[in-house]
């Protein structure tokens, strides 16, 4: 009984903290200002998720080749024209192929990049849960079937020992102590 009351206390505490979090979230407002000159940082922010075919596996924003420098200049021009990040990415994908995008477009075959992990983990998860439940059922069967029939009372007690007394005692320290003593 006492235990339950204490849990409720913590529940209150959690709720309070949750409210606090929500409040802080709501008060947080960040606004982005747009300026005229296109800076290197703005260019890099777009280039970061592009990969030019000349230097494989190196993002466009850090690639030192002349070709990549040209690509970045083009991004700068397009940003100055007021194009958005998505529009620029689209342009590069059209011009040089989808292979330049770090984040492949969600269409056609590349959909499997999103579909497979989601479906795979979901199906895997369901199978896994079913499997574990099955194991659990067999565990119950084993506990009831084996212990009383095939064992002497003494060893039956030792089988049950890890299940029952630890549940009851619930004291980690004593368990560790016992174990340490046992190892001596």
């Amino acid at each position: 009984m006492k235990e339950r009351l204490r849990i409720t206390d913590y529940g209150l505490c959690f709720t309070f903290c949750g409210l606090l979090l929500t409040l802080l979230f709501l008060t947080a407002g960040v606004a982005m200002a747009q300026t005229g000159e296109v800076t290197d940082d703005e260019v890099n922010a777009v280039a970061k998720d592009l990969f030019c075919p000349v230097c494989e596996s190196t993002p466009l924003d850090v690639c030192p080749t002349k070709a990549c420098a040209d690509w970045r200049e083009l991004i700068r021009t397009q940003l100055a024209e007021g194009k958005t990040r998505a529009e620029i990415h689209d342009y590069f994908a059209r011009q040089y192929g989808d292979g330049v995008l770090a984040d492949p477009p969600k269409r056609g075959f590349s959909l499997i990049l999103w579909a497979l992990p989601v479906i795979g983990v979901a199906i895997g998860g369901v199978l896994f849960v079913r499997y574990v439940r099955n194991l659990r059922r067999e565990g119950d069967a084993a506990a009831t079937a084996v212990v009383p029939t095939t064992l002497s009372p003494a060893s039956a007690a030792s089988v049950l020992q890890p299940i029952v007394p630890l549940e009851a005692s619930g004291d980690y320290v004593s368990r560790v102590e016992e174990e340490l003593l046992a190892r001596k």
């Binding site: 990969f51 192929g97 989808d98 770090a102 984040d103 492949p104 075959f109 499997i112 497979l116």
Partner: peptide, 22 residues
């Protein structure tokens, strides 16, 4: 899946795909 995607994609679509860090 992501590491082998380029081969996979070339096999199916004929174009070498690419999966970036994001």
């Amino acid at each position: 899946l992501f590491t082998y995607y380029p081969i996979f994609s070339e096999l199916i679509t004929g174009e070498k795909g690419f999966v970036g860090p994001p």
